[in-house]
Design a protein around this nucleic acid. Structure first.
Lengths: 197, 197
DNA sequence: AGCGTTAATTATCTTTTGTTAACTGCACCA
DNA sequence: TGGTGCAGTTAACAAAAGATAATTAACGCT
């Protein structure tokens, strides 16, 4: 059930949608609470669900053949969270999605949502907006690997999302940046010791 | 004007679309030829155009502050090519899109296309398919930077698109992989000298 | 208080990459 | 034929990152 506060909240986020469209979309969503440490989507899962994080933090990771634990993605407040493998590629999720904090999210069954979206042009075009936002985020991250050094990527994350370092262990952030935790520690040291100019 | 061969071709590519829908989409497209070396989209350009490459190869690149010339993306046959900056972010293109070979593409004015897409639910849903394909490509590339070493990324490209190495100078492929041309040369040497097992 | 767990840092060493510059091979061309 | 330009390789050195292990710090728990 949506409270007035919820409605206020969602109208703020989804500025382009009318109230009725918004209601159409969210009346089939249900709130879900995930305690810190719990897994939201198991590796190998095939369920097509789409979550919108209202509070908390979810980490997508996998374990490589050599045993390395690698963070693929972090998602936090006001972001969508879903397994791209199941939603886009229609295959079992290669990654595990786990809450790092107590997390509350609105969850939609993607199959049901698709039907509603397809029958409502306004909502359908909103799906495009969401897809394009996700695409631009993915491209920006991809570009950062080509354009920037690990140290520059660290500084970028530091300026764009400073409080993430208080919420997520460095070892998870390191692999997100494409480096090892040891290397991240060295980068941090280099920067604090850097000559001020 | 679409020839029967064109129609045959596009029906093969866009399997999910009916002929009439396809015609609707492509009657506003026009063929364009770009000689090898010519720029398709200038850095700073704002025109919203969407190209579909029928033949040839286009490279997106930029020049960093330190003078480094970096390849962001390569697109080839049966792929869409567009400046994400102009289409998605509505900002001037940060990159230059240049043909590395004589390239022929079908070009659409994205503004006009949007109007047609919005008025045709079937086409609109097809836009989603395209966006999702682009998103999965971007995510896969992004993941490759987190999961694989430069050497592994090179081997991945080699197996997935072997003939690209005959079509694109190594120095462009190197920066695409996130390394320098010198480093790519060393990787190639390491691999050819690797003990066979 | 003492124990155990885990994250983070530090140390040591190896491997890889970046940087710069020299060298090689090749195409183009006057 | 010799010169010019450029891609690719190689060399030499510096810088950074990976691997492994030891150390430190923080926290919860009995």
């Amino acid at each position: 059930m949506l409270t007035p506060e919820d409605i206020q909240f969602y109208l703020g986020i989804f500025k382009d949608l009318s109230f009725t469209d918004l209601y159409e979309l969210f009346k089939m969503a249900q709130a879900k609470r995930i305690p810190a440490g719990d897994v939201y989507i198991e590796q190998g899962a095939t369920a097509k669900k789409l979550g919108f994080i209202r509070k908390g933090l979810i980490r997508a990771h996998c374990v490589k053949d050599n045993g390395d634990n690698v963070t693929l993605m972090l998602r936090w407040e006001n972001q969508f969270i879903a397994s791209h493998d199941t939603l886009i590629l229609n295959q079992p999720s290669r990654f595990t999605y786990q809450a790092l904090e107590d997390t509350t999210l609105m969850e939609l069954d993607y199959g049901r949502m698709e039907a509603i979206l397809d029958s409502n042009p306004k909502l359908s075009s909103y799906r495009n907006v969401i897809l394009m936002r996700m695409l631009s985020e993915a491209l920006e991250r991809m570009e950062s690997f080509v354009l920037f050094t690990p140290e520059e990527r660290y500084l970028k994350l530091l300026t764009e999302k400073p409080n993430i370092f208080n919420r997520v262990p460095n070892k998870y952030l390191a692999t997100l940046l494409g480096i090892t935790p040891v290397s991240l520690s060295r980068i941090r040291k280099r920067i604090t010791q850097a000559p001020k100019r």
